[in-house]
Design a protein around this nucleic acid. Structure first.
Ligand SMILES: [Zn+2]
Ligand SMILES: [Zn+2]
Ligand SMILES: [Zn+2]
Ligand SMILES: [Zn+2]
Lengths: 158, 158
DNA sequence: GCAATGGTGTTATGAGATAACATCACGTCT
DNA sequence: AGACGTGATGTTATCTCATAACACCATTGC
């Protein structure tokens, strides 16, 4: 953990060691699956991990080159698409932002609690078979993916 | 109802009579509340009702002037904001589109079932106190509004 | 080698949304 | 009526978000 003081920071940005560890783990896993964890993809994943909260695509574009050189939009959007496809990141549609996945399980449906005050988010496991699933079944829909995002105030901002 | 043939059309576009009725009802209700249901707002609401499915903002802009004269973007976006604030329409974030509310109750949280094949949507009442509510409570979040959108195939497209 | 596949670099453009400011319509107070 | 405050509109310009299209490069399998 990267705590440097006593009180609790909910989902604050992880330290460099945590980021490196997560990057390495993702690299190993995807390589084992025959996927190519290229520098651009790894870099975007690193930026998402380091942020520890949702990041706008154009912020990633701006930060991509550490020395201030921005990336071209397709570079980052392609990496984001890959990361999302592989379950390493999620797009949060209601704020048009992207966040690194904090769930251990791969290939999962995610739901988010988003603080409108400070921007903190918490990823929770999506209730695939919950109320929404029952409503879908009743309407005859077959669900492939869900976008579940709850906005409000985090514990620290109430 | 506006059925003209025997078999079922799920949530198809309503007839002119239905649209006029919904417009009048909304006008009466909002006027009684002291709100101003202006021509621009009524026109955007009419377009949403007539479509019977999610519509992109720029499609509304294009259709706004019946004779082919488009509206200026702020005209439509302002109307959409008003309609959403008053519970007459919803934004569907995952597809950046807007849809007329089909729920009778005002001031409600909505969830949507969206067919990725034909674009049909079904509005269902959002399970505010369901799994998501429990997850939020456990994480200490206080929820103000939710974005719940399930994508898949409607009964007709399976 | 050579083709097939998938990733990258680059340019340009499309699609979605809002800022800013002037003007107008309406209710209210005097 | 006249003055004022408030909220809605018109208009211009701009900003943010995302992708199309095409050339080039790397890796793999034949
Ligand atoms: Zn996740
Ligand atoms: Zn907060
Ligand atoms: Zn509704
Ligand atoms: Zn369908």
């Amino acid at each position: 953990m990267s705590e440097t003081c006593g009180h609790h920071h909910a989902d604050g940005p992880p330290g460099a060691a945590d980021v490196a560890l997560a990057m390495q783990a993702a690299d190993l896993r995807l390589t084992a699956e025959g996927e190519r964890m290229t520098p651009a993809r790894l870099r975007v994943f690193e930026l998402l991990l380091a942020a520890g909260e949702p990041v706008k695509a154009y912020d990633l574009i701006a930060r991509f080159g550490g020395d201030g050189q921005p990336a071209k939009p397709p570079t980052v959007y392609r990496a984001l698409e890959f990361l999302e496809r592989k379950g390493l990141a999620h797009r949060i549609a209601s704020i048009s932002a992207y966040v690194a996945c904090t769930s251990g399980s791969i290939d999962h449906a995610a739901a988010f609690l988003i603080c409108d005050c400070c921007g903190a988010t918490a990823e929770v496991s999506a209730p695939v078979a919950g109320d929404l699933g029952r409503a879908a079944e009743a309407a005859g829909y077959v669900i492939a993916r869900t976008t579940i995002e709850a906005h409000g105030r985090c514990p620290a901002c109430q």
